[in-house]
Nucleic acid binder design. Sequence first.
DNA 1: AACTGAGCCAACCGCCGAGAC
DNA 2: AGTCTCGGCGGTTGGCTCAGT
Length: 371
Amino acid sequence: MGRPPCCDKSNVKRGLWTPEEDAKILAYVSNNGIGNWTLVPQKAGLNRCGKSCRLRWTNYLRPDLKHDGFTPQEEDLIINLHKAIGSRWSHIAKQLPGRTDNDVKNYWNTKLRKKLFKLGIDPVTHKPFSQILSDCRDISGFQNSQNQIGSLNKNMKYYASVPTPEPSSVLTVFPNTDMIRNKPVMEQVQDSSSNVNIHSWHCLSQFQVLDPEIIQPHFFNEAISSCSSTSSSNVTQLGSPQSYSCQPSHAQITPSSSFNWSEFLSEPLPYLGFQQQQDRHLKGILSPTNCPSTLEQTPQLNLATGNYSGLNRIGHEGGFGTFDFGSTSVGQANNRSEASSSVSSFVDAILEQDSELRAEFPDILDGSFDY
DNA sequence: AACTGAGCCAACCGCCGAGAC
DNA sequence: AGTCTCGGCGGTTGGCTCAGT
């Protein structure tokens, strides 16, 4: 036989915690420290499950927790880490002192995903939607294309709550994707001064290339299954540098058996000598020197500098430990605080620039990207 | 004032690996 | 060796708040 159960699940209190219960937890921990949580309810005089007590302490009562809003630097770090490792919230939270995985997860789900979407970036793959569309043209086989669009559509529906369209509308886009393909998204961005504004504009313009009737939300119909579940294997077999998997980023970079996320994330960053530890941490995470890898022409949003680079590191065929935290140079990273101070948030800046573009080119942009 | 829907977030659920028994 | 809980994790949900109608 195993251990006895920690509590009678049917008789413990659930739901929101009262200040009195919080006080009991705090008093208990301050007197006894953190030990066996199954004993805490009994010793602290709480009619709660030990697991519930642990969560309350971990997510709310811990004295080292921050309860204020996320800073732009934290936002950028979350986005870059999510791009690199996917929804491993505990690992991401470890890079953010005073934040819990629950905090990060909630912030991502309620704010950051929507921000990325407004920028025209798929929050799952961290790739521009226009690029995903162009990929559809590159992918041989109609099924794959359907799946890619399906993923995009899924996101669109999530963020825009669009009405369910006719399934046939999905098909109408494909004859037009030539227009997209002939206009590579990152081509101009890479050799420019890399202002993300260009990307934003480019992304918008690419959407505009398509018939507005087609590109409007109903285009992204849920006529097909999500690519994350059905097309990933197909897509990754293509092997073309211009082909991008529609998988979630964490699936895309599945670690080898010997790879350890915790070790990787906790590794020191000797090439950086920043004054403040947190800054050092943030910048270090964004450094490209962390792991050498195969280079691939993949657009890369650099939230630290506002650049959108075409160079990205992607591990191939599942064997890696090589991935990218953002293709910024160390020099760029060093300028990070400066950039952050001049612009409250990179993402906010993009949105602002996007608004300016709309004001400048109302005829072109209106209706093409609002949902 | 009442209703509705979106946004937010604390808490719960369910799974998994490690370890106790 | 097998069974079970603990602790940790990511995903999901319930309920509160607030703005809009």
